[in-house]
Each structure stands twice: as C-alpha cells, then as structure tokens.
Simulated assay, not measured.
Amino acid sequence: MDENAGTAKGVRQVGEIEEFKALAHPLRARLLGALREHGPATATELARRFATDTGSTSYHLRKLAQAGFIAEAGEPGHPRARRWQAVHRVNEWSAVDMAATAEGREASAIMRRQQVDILIRDVEAYEAALSSLPTAWVDASGVGDLLVRLTPDSVNTLWARFYAHVDELVAQDATDPAARPVSIVVAGLPRNAS
C-alpha cells in the first residue's frame, strides 16, 4: 500500500442519479478503488495499472472529478502529470431512492455486479497466493454464507453493527505491522418465501 493511501476521509452520501451513474462505470469504479487503496496517482500511472490508454483514463478521471469523487492532489500541473486522489473513504446511497427509477435500478444493478466481480478477482488472487501465505492468514481467511430469517429492521441493525465493528477493528489495527489490506464483501438480499 502506498504511504499516501488512506488520505480520503469520511462518507459521501450519493443522492443524485447522475452522481451514481458516474460511479457505475466499471473503469471509473476501479480507478476510484485504486486511488483509495494506493493513494494519489496520475492518469498515466493508472492507465498502466489497468492496461488502458491514457486518454480514456484521463476522461474517466475527469468524470469522477466533475461528480466530486476525486480531486487534484497537490499543485495543478500538466494534464498528464496531474495527480488525482479520492475525496471520500466510502460512498453510500439510498437503495430506496435508486430503486424508484429505471435509471437508478440499472445503475444499482451495475454496482452490485461490480462488487461481485471484485469478490471473484479477490478469490482468484487469494487462491493463486495460497501456498505462499502465512498460516495465520490462511486460518483467518474465508468465504461463508448464511440463510437466516430476519425483518428489514433487523437487517438494518446488522449493517449498522457490522460497519461499526469494522471501524473499531480498523482503528485498533491501524499501527500494527501485521495488518494488511483485507477485502470484505458483504450482502444481505431477501429471498422469496417459497
């Protein structure tokens, strides 16, 4: 992880469909994720990371900046030398508001599938590295699923407690040299009663 990573602070509440659509583009989501994980970078560095051309990468970075998800890091410079950084640590939105329109439902579906794609990439990378991981990490790693009966209020309580506990653990481990980035993907999706 880059020494400048983690400089983004706080939560961004995404309220407008146009903002949400800016996030729903697959390359933009990956660019924002890389800026959050690795810290500030130029379009050229990000294009190299994702095997895209610099022009396309610059275009998508400008779209993220226009929507307020990223900003220039430090002094403005030549467009190709401009360094970008994430503005917020995480984005949130109202699932109810997004489900109210066809555009919102489409953008939400794209975001959910991107999250599943991240999980697949992380599982594949984990499996490729499994033989070289320390035993403690092998023991701590895993993927699980549960099927439980809950009310919508209980699911919302679960989310709140889960994220609060994650924040506590991140703060606890912030200076521990044994800590490393850990991908956590969670879902709570109702099934039909039948």
Rank of each mutant, 00 (worst) to 15 (best):
H38S: 11
H38G: 06
H38P: 02
G39M: 02
G39L: 02
P40Y: 03
P40I: 02
P40H: 03
A41M: 02
T42N: 00
A43T: 04
E45R: 10
E45M: 10
E45C: 07
L46V: 03
R48I: 12
R48M: 13
R48H: 14
R48A: 15
R48S: 11
R49C: 09
F50K: 03
F50G: 02
A51M: 12
A51G: 12
A51D: 14
T52G: 02
T52K: 08
T54M: 06
T54W: 08
T54Y: 07
T54I: 09
T54H: 13
G55H: 10
S56R: 12
S56N: 14
S56Y: 11
T57K: 04
T57Y: 07
S58Q: 08
Y59M: 09
H60F: 11
R62G: 08
R62H: 14
R62L: 10
K63P: 07
K63G: 09
L64T: 06
L64K: 03
A65H: 13
Q66L: 14
A67M: 06
G68M: 10
G68N: 11
I70E: 01
I70H: 00
A71L: 14
A71P: 05
A71H: 14
A73C: 14
G74I: 00
E75K: 12
E75L: 10
P76Y: 09
P76W: 06
G77R: 11
H78E: 12
H78W: 08
P79C: 06
P79S: 09
P79G: 06
